[in-house]
Design a protein around this nucleic acid. Structure first.
Lengths: 219, 219
DNA sequence: ATTAATATTTAGTTTAGTCTAAAAAAAATA
DNA sequence: TATTTTTTTTAGACTAAACTAAATATTAAT
């Protein structure tokens, strides 16, 4: 049985291993958890002991299959409570997160089963994120490199394939990042470059190489 | 701000100071909390530091006005969640306690305000215990053995005085339980037995002994 | 290929809550 | 009243989760 704190670490590891590589670095986790790398190092050993992550010194952590299942169970509870707060208690979407962060740690299988029924087995939370089922299965949004999209398609950037600092610097300069909404405006056959609109705001052109290395999630 | 553990100690102190004297002894509290007197001694100092109890060495604790208010706030949350679990999620009365023990520690004034509205501002929990209002005011019900009532009186069964399994089996068979509404229809002077109506539904006769061991709360 | 910079781990403390064993105070009893 | 018994507190240790400072490993840069 994991403690509240351990559950929160596991959730963070799960999220980071989706957005970036599978390997999650100590520093990234420390930043996500708003704590120090030293604390993370300690916690990683505990989680490794409990077989929810695998870990080699200085090599970052990988979430295990057990860990993934546990993380998704917590996420399921979080998202179900969010639905409850919005649909039944008239919370606005920006009021739900903090409370759901607390409610997600309540331990009672019956409670979650009944809550799910009460809410009519919702598939998505108020932010549009999918709710994992009781076995930890998640309808993952299809994730593709940007250059696989066609004109008119859009998606949310969730990761990069190339994580060289030069590429990341380029993205930074262009003000594209994880979470950016990207819509394909035009595709130039000649060199494979694309015109894209970012966050319904600025339009810019990216090379074929860049487009290959930006991963987007589409519905 | 009190921790979960501190809140639980405070609740226990509140309950013990109702049932017995205002003075709560270290040993009694240790038994209630299923811990050691030494741990209780330590905790009492912390609670005293935070002015929720007053305490003189070797003299036991007294809950303060602030402490009472805080304890009643936790009890309010506990009982509101119990109503939710029974009325909305179809829990039975014996399934709610453990889960409500967890839910009562969630910190969000908005959540409790909205939950209260959602449930229609209930005055009593599923066991018939009154729900304190948001200011920590409690409508204490007068609790009496059934045989003390007169014809026409009614109340909600809240407890039993005899908890032998033979008595509980009898109650089970008669379909009387915690939360049942009991109205006195007739009182037979000859042997002290009573005719009662349960939940405005079935009428039955109970012996004087039975009536002495059923406790009811009257408004 | 060294050196410099960055990332990660270890070592040593801290706080909350718990424990056992021992000491001290209060209550009960003779 | 003196003594025994019970209750309560203190002292010292333990675990979980955090921190700071120092040491070590890895990566980047010259």
């Amino acid at each position: 049985m994991l403690s509240f704190v351990e559950e929160n670490y596991l959730k963070a590891i799960y999220h980071l291993s989706l957005n970036g590589k599978q390997e999650v670095s100590t520093n990234a986790l420390a930043e996500e958890m708003r704590t120090t790398p030293a604390s993370v190092s300690d916690m990683i050993k505990k989680l490794s002991q409990k077989s929810v992550v695998s870990y080699k010194k200085y090599q970052g952590v990988n979430i295990s299959e057990d860990g993934r299942r546990l993380a998704l169970h917590v996420i399921r509870k979080h998202r179900l409570w969010e639905v409850f707060l919005v649909e039944k208690l008239n919370f606005t979407w920006d009021q739900v997160h903090e409370v759901a962060e607390q409610l997600e740690h309540i331990k009672s299988p019956l409670l979650i089963q009944r809550l799910d029924e009460f809410l009519g087995h919702p598939k998505y939370d108020p932010h549009g994120d999918p709710i994992p089922d009781e076995h930890g299965n998640l309808i993952e949004k299809h994730r593709q490199p940007l250059d696989a999209l066609s004109i008119g398609d859009q998606g949310v950037m969730t990761a990069v394939d190339d994580s060289s600092s030069s590429f990341l610097k380029y993205l930074d300069k262009m003000e594209i990042g994880i979470g950016s909404n990207i819509k394909v405006i035009d595709f130039i056959e000649f060199d494979g470059s694309m015109d894209i609109k970012v966050d319904d705001d600025k339009t810019l052109t990216v090379s074929s190489t860049v487009a290959q290395n930006i991963l987007v999630a589409i519905d």
